[in-house]
C-alpha cells in the first residue's frame, strides 16, 4: 500500500530535471514554433500577425523540396556508411587484446576531439582538385583524375562519416560489453566461422546499440550545419544551411523558424518510423521491449 507521500516522491525527485528540460528545450521550441507563424518585412522586421504563410511558401518551393531531399539523402547515406564501418570496427576492437583497446578507442574517438572547423579545413585540403587525394589518384594514373571532390555531396558524406563513426563504435561497444563472451565460443563449437559468429550471433544481440548509433548519426547528420556548408558549398543547400541563411543573412526569422520546425518535424517523423518499423522488431526478439513474446 503506497502512502500519498510515497507516490509524490518520484515526482518531486524528477521535478528539478523536468524543469531544466522544460526551460532549456520546450520553452525555446515553443518560441520557435510561435515565431514561425509570424510574417516578415524587410523594413519592419517581424510582423505581429499570425498565419501559415511561411509553411505554404516552403511547401510550394521546389528549392526547399530539393534541399530537404538532399538533407535526407546525405543523412541516410552517412548513416549507412557509418554502420558498415562502425559496427565491424567496434567488434574488432572488442576482440583486441585489452592492452590495445584503450589506445584504439582513443584513436576512434579522435575525430570527436577536433573542432569541426579544423576538421573540415583538413578535408578541404585533402579533397581539393590539387589536394592529396587527387595527387595520389593522378600519380596512380587513375583515368579521369583529378576528380572534382570538393563541393559535392560525396565530400559532405565523407566529412560527416569521419566524425559520426565514433558514435556508432561507442554505442555498439557498450552493447558488446553486455554480451556474454561465451556465446561466441558456443557458436564456434557448433561449427560457425568468424563471419557467421558475427552475423548470426553477435550482430543480433548488439542490435540495440546498432539502432541507437544509427539514430544518433541520422539525426545529427540531418541537422548538421558546418560540414555541409564548408565541404558542400553554397550550391548544395541543406535545410540547416537554409535556416542559417534566413536567420543570419536575410534576417527573415519567421521563415527560418518555419524551416527549423519543418526539419525537426521531418527528423522526428523519420525517427518514429524507424523505431516503429525496425527497432521494435529487433528489440522484441531480445526481450527489451514490453513483453512481446510468450510469457
Amino acid at each position: 500500500m503506497m502512502t500519498r507521500s510515497d507516490r509524490l516522491t518520484p515526482a518531486l525527485l524528477t521535478a528539478p530535471s523536468a524543469l531544466v528540460y522544460a526551460g532549456a528545450l520546450l520553452v525555446p521550441l515553443a518560441g520557435v514554433l510561435a515565431l514561425s507563424l509570424h510574417g516578415f518585412d524587410f523594413e519592419k522586421g517581424v510582423l505581429p500577425g499570425w498565419g501559415l504563410a511561411n509553411y505554404q511558401d516552403l511547401f510550394t518551393d521546389p528549392l526547399f523540396g530539393e534541399a530537404l531531399a538532399r538533407t535526407f539523402r546525405i543523412a541516410g547515406l552517412t548513416t549507412l556508411i557509418c554502420l558498415l564501418v562502425g559496427v565491424p570496427e567496434a567488434w574488432i576492437i572488442h576482440r583486441m587484446d585489452p592492452r590495445w583497446r584503450g589506445p584504439m578507442l582513443l584513436v576512434v574517438v579522435g575525430p570527436l576531439l577536433v573542432s569541426v572547423v579544423v576538421r573540415n579545413f583538413g578535408w578541404m585540403v585533402l579533397l581539393g582538385t590539387n589536394g592529396l587525394v587527387n595527387q595520389a589518384l593522378t600519380a596512380l594514373h587513375v583515368p579521369g583524375a583529378p576528380f572534382r571532390l570538393m563541393f559535392t555531396e560525396l565530400a559532405v558524406v565523407i566529412g560527416l562519416v569521419h566524425v559520426m563513426v565514433p558514435l556508432v563504435v561507442l554505442s555498439v561497444w557498450a552493447s558488446l560489453g553486455r554480451l556474454d563472451p561465451v556465446l561466441e565460443r558456443a557458436a564456434t563449437s557448433l561449427g560457425a566461422g568468424r563471419f557467421t559468429v558475427f552475423t548470426r550471433v553477435v550482430l543480433p544481440n548488439v542490435m540495440p546499440g546498432v539502432m541507437a548509433g544509427a539514430l544518433m548519426v541520422f539525426c545529427l547528420s540531418a541537422s548538421a550545419f558546418a560540414t555541409p556548408a564548408m565541404l558542400g558549398g553554397k550550391r548544395l543547400k541543406v535545410v540547416s544551411s537554409m535556416t542559417y541563411n534566413e536567420f543570419l543573412n536575410t534576417l527573415n526569422w519567421p521563415l527560418g523558424a518555419a524551416l527549423a520546425t519543418v526539419l525537426m518535424a521531418a527528423i522526428l517523423l523519420a525517427t518514429l518510423l524507424w523505431t516503429r518499423l525496425v527497432e521494435r522488431r529487433a528489440l522484441r526478439r531480445l526481450g527489451e521491449v514490453a513483453q512481446g513474446g510468450p510469457a
Binding site: 561465451v182 556465446l183 565460443r185 558456443a186 557458436a187 563449437s189 550471433v201 544481440n205 531480445l286 526481450g287
Partner: peptide, 14 residues
C-alpha cells in the same frame, strides 16, 4: 566435432 555445454548455458538470447 565437440559438443560444449557451459556453466552460463550460453543460449543465443535472440
Amino acid at each position: 566435432g565437440i559438443g560444449l555445454v557451459f556453466q552460463s548455458y550460453a543460449l543465443f538470447p535472440h
